[in-house]
């Protein structure tokens, strides 16, 4: 087995174990929150998806900078793969956020600061893909989307700050600032770890699939040119 396979299998086992443990913690172990009731358990899914939406963009940012500086295709593949996973988790974060908002605030969508910022982030992800697919050639597409990757990450804190100031304080931040009961904190941490490990597993799969794809393309080109 080469190192890639060891890495992949390790991540697979780790993700499986952590996911199973976190399911147990979320549904059996953790006490039900007093005010919000059973719905509050969504929290342990919402925070990890939101976290992955951000983490993916950080990886895009790193991949984009390295691609622009070094011009090695592997960095573009890293950024692109992370973006594909990231937009899935951003979409999930929006959906889970809506499901959470319904019982808490009585509406499916509310312009709550973090939800709004996530929506803007989702649009930046879309821009990342659109500029790539609409560029006149693949190399340009990679370069342009790298620029969106860099500008986007720099913009995220500003968006978060402006939406927070814009909407004022909602019930949400209580969870983060008021301190969590130790069992809740433990469940959240395990859940975060499980999703993070799952993210790196997906990233590993995506990157190797894309590497194979570009290898096949080069082989095909060399056959054609004969």
């Amino acid at each position: 087995m080469n190192t890639n396979n060891i890495l992949r299998n390790g991540l697979l086992i780790l993700s499986f174990v952590l996911m199973t443990v976190s399911l147990y913690l979320v549904f059996v172990f953790v006490p039900t929150e007093r005010e919000m009731g059973i719905v509050q358990r969504i929290f342990y899914l919402m925070v990890p998806t939101g976290w992955l939406a951000l983490l993916s963009f950080v990886i895009i940012f790193i991949g984009s900078i390295l691609y622009l500086v070094k011009r090695a295709r592997k960095w573009d593949i890293l950024a692109m793969s992370s973006a594909e996973i990231g937009i899935v988790f951003t979409t999930l974060a929006l959906i889970v956020g809506s499901i959470w908002a319904r019982p808490i605030w009585g509406v499916w969508w509310t312009w709550e600061p973090r939800l709004t910022a996530t929506l803007v982030l989702w649009f930046i992800y879309l821009a990342y893909f659109m500029v790539r697919s609409l560029a006149t050639d693949p190399e340009r597409g990679a370069r342009y989307s790298a620029i969106v990757g860099i500008i986007g990450l720099v913009d995220i804190p500003i968006i978060a700050l402006s939406t927070t100031l814009w909407r004022g304080i909602h019930p949400g931040p209580v969870i983060f600032s008021g301190g969590l009961a130790p069992p809740m904190l433990l469940t959240l941490m395990v859940s975060l770890a499980a999703f993070t490990s799952f993210y790196f597993l997906l990233l590993q799969y995506k990157v190797s699939a894309k590497n194979d794809e570009s290898l096949i393309n080069t082989l095909r080109e060399s056959i054609k040119s004969r």
């Binding site: 803007v120 649009f123 659109m130 609409l134 006149t136």
Partner: peptide, 16 residues
């Protein structure tokens, strides 16, 4: 330098 250039600018510009 993209196809449909009038469409690309707003898509990039507004979220940022």
């Amino acid at each position: 330098n993209t196809k449909a250039r009038e469409m690309v600018l707003p898509i990039l510009f507004f979220p940022i």
